[in-house]
Write a protein that binds this DNA or RNA. Structure first.
Ligand SMILES: [Mn+2]
Ligand SMILES: [Mn+2]
Ligand SMILES: [Zn+2]
Ligand SMILES: [Zn+2]
Lengths: 137, 137
DNA sequence: TTCCAAATTTGTAATTGTTACAAATGAGTA
DNA sequence: TACTCATTTGTAACAATTACAAATTTGGAA
């Protein structure tokens, strides 16, 4: 298990206390927290922590590819350390977010790992056919 | 093709001018606009239109099931009239949002309808296994 | 070690997207 | 016409995020 500091150094990020604690939190608690949740969780331990630092750090980590930024359902951004591609399932009763590693066929599945699916959103990103043709070949 | 007014009446919504124009816009322009985009588009024609009315109306329509509210990638909510289940693809070059009706297997596909996929988010919603068991059977 | 430039953090203000709320307006009805 | 209820409007509040400049910290050069 790579140490937090080593992960930061490998990505050319100076391992400040703030950065270490934020990455450590995301490695330990795989709850897909928002920036504010991370801030609230660390504020006790680090009373001078600024919310701007949390935002700055999350931006840096995301740009370096250490974190993934997610728009799940609401209008706030969630973050996670997990890098393997996977699916997200959020329960409408308990709000918990599950990571799923199954295949999902939106024309068939209505049950996955025992969870009942009532709604799905498949959002893809990339270069569209038209833009691909414009570039040349 | 159902008239706008008829759609509203069928859903027990009084067909005010504002509601007609907003639904008409969403039926005509399938660009998945935000509340602000709709407001900007209609403001010329309806100089007294309030942004609150746009938000209120979108909320009413969504609750009645006439519209679908979407969290695609950013932190703003997009709306669409299209009711059939489908997939969204946004181009990182031209920002256009495409509706796709294919199947998508995140373990295989990297090309769909000629669009090159570089990132995907599959977000499911429902009742988790644990909450299903709590209720009884 | 001491000093300093560069990096990092901080606090505050600004911006954006959205909701709350009460007053104004409008439509339908007696 | 007058009344009532629905709808719209404008403003303020709120939440998430970003901009920015001042303060602090840091890692070397002297
Ligand atoms: Mn995840
Ligand atoms: Mn669509
Ligand atoms: Zn649950
Ligand atoms: Zn494109």
């Amino acid at each position: 298990m790579k140490s937090i500091i080593r992960i930061l150094k490998e990505n050319d990020i100076a391992p400040s206390m703030q950065r270490i604690k934020i990455l450590e939190y995301l490695k330990n608690y795989k709850t897909h927290p928002t920036a504010d949740m991370i801030y609230q969780a660390l504020a006790d331990e680090m009373p001078t922590l600024s919310k701007t630092t949390v935002y700055n750090t999350l931006k840096t980590f995301t740009e370096k590819g250490i974190l993934m930024a997610l728009s799940l359902f609401g209008n706030e951004i969630r973050y996670e350390y997990n890098t393997q591609p996977h699916i997200h399932f959020q329960c409408i009763k308990c709000d918990k977010i599950y990571d799923l590693y199954n295949s999902f066929d939106h024309y068939n599945n209505d049950l996955i790992d025992g969870h009942k699916i009532t709604e799905y959103h498949i959002n893809l990103k990339g270069v569209c056919k038209s833009c691909l043709e414009k570039v040349g070949d």
